[in-house]
């Protein structure tokens, strides 16, 4: 992909992302951050590519895959755990 197109894409992401993320209420800011941890694991894509390159240094790209996967799996899982806490009282209506 040409660098210019890539740039336009990144700017579009920044603008759209700002609109969407600014609307997340403070109530959900912690899950938002842990969800962002998961998304920052997107480096996994380039780490897998590095792993497939013969010239790249395997231990380094393996370490990158390990850490990025930990971010993805850990981030999504802990977010899921937290979001369930927010749902609990409304759903089950445990009498007080």
């Amino acid at each position: 992909m040409p660098t210019l197109v890539l740039f336009v894409f990144v700017v579009a992401c920044a603008l759209l992302g700002y609109r969407v993320i600014a609307a997340v209420p403070p109530l959900l800011h912690t899950p938002l951050m842990s969800g962002m941890n998961a998304l920052s694991g997107i480096t996994l894509l380039v780490a897998l590519r590095a792993l497939s390159h013969e010239s790249s240094v395997t231990p380094l790209s393996m370490a990158a895959v390990v850490l990025a996967t930990a971010n993805v799996v850990g981030g999504f899982w802990v977010t899921e755990r937290m979001l369930r806490m927010f749902q609990r009282p409304g759903k089950e209506e445990e009498g007080r």
């Binding site: 941890n37 920052s40 694991g41 390159h53 790249s56 990025a68 971010n71």
Partner: peptide
């Protein structure tokens, strides 16, 4: 936990680049 995962994210990005330096 979030701080640690922030660190993992940063490290993963740096490591990918480091692994690709021969290229």
């Amino acid at each position: 936990l979030v701080a640690l995962l922030n660190g993992f994210g940063g490290a993963a990005s740096a490591l990918v680049i480091a692994a690709m330096i021969p290229d």
